[in-house]
Design a protein around this nucleic acid. Structure first.
Lengths: 128, 128
DNA sequence: TTAATTCATTACGCTATCGAACCGTTTTAG
DNA sequence: CTAAAACGGTTCGATAGCGTAATGAATTAA
């Protein structure tokens, strides 16, 4: 059996890891801010998911403790990648806001990913 | 000018970040070993690049100090994701070797990436 | 055989992050 | 108005990571 259906395997595991390796290694080599996985996760959530973002919400999203989120925000704030702002509607809450510097960093990072994606099937730089 | 060439934008920056976010967040949520970027970089190099891998070589590849590599290998060895073996041809050198557990971890990780890739254009699960 | 080189690790002082528990403020319930 | 709950931050002791410099072992050069 197993009729010969010319399937397009799209992307194979080895290629997925290759994409990851190229991107991460390039980031390390460029001496980018050495963000932990958690910090990067928070940064990505804040910039790609609709606002508002609170400490409690992020803590739940990532299934990590609130102090861990607070510390990650300290670090990201230090880098000026996010800013904190008290929610005026509920002054107990803190809203995590985006910054220009954070946007630039992630835009660069996206560029890094895209550059390494061009060597994947169906993605060989076919944009105009 | 700028004739209307119907270009296939392939993947846009926002989609690249979306892929990254989904994958990283899922990893954090699953309580995967919280590897640093450097540790992940070393793991990926060891498993996707041809052997042999030495401390000195990895240090050069990533442009980081040798002690940093040694410490990363300590952590990865602790997790049994890699193993050290003295090079018998030059007993000063240490060869970094792969393990079954490391292979499984990266295979899972690749699966995570691929799953999130299916929502990218031209990659919508078109494998047979 | 001695000296210099190379490779990896360890020592050191420092900073960052961890989870658990506690604190202060604000909001909501009674 | 008081009591309870919710939210974020801080403190605590502990662990892990950093870069620089020193150490130990193996190799190469003289």
């Amino acid at each position: 059996m197993d009729p010969v259906i010319p399937s397009t395997p799209a992307v194979k595991p080895a290629q997925a890891l290759e994409l990851w390796r190229r991107t991460i290694v390039e980031g390390v080599r460029r001496d980018q801010p050495d963000l932990s996985t958690r910090q990067m996760a928070i940064l990505l959530i804040v910039y790609t998911q609709p606002a508002p973002h609170t400490v409690r919400g992020l803590s739940g999203d990532l299934n990590i403790s609130k102090p861990a989120v607070t510390r990650a925000l300290d670090r990201l704030g230090q880098l000026d990648f996010v800013r904190r702002k008290v929610d005026e509607d509920d002054r107990r809450s803190v809203l995590v806001q985006r910054t220009l510097k954070g946007s630039v960093f992630l835009a660069d990072y996206a560029g890094l990913i895209l550059a390494n994606m061009t060597m994947l099937p169906e993605h060989n730089g076919s944009a105009s």
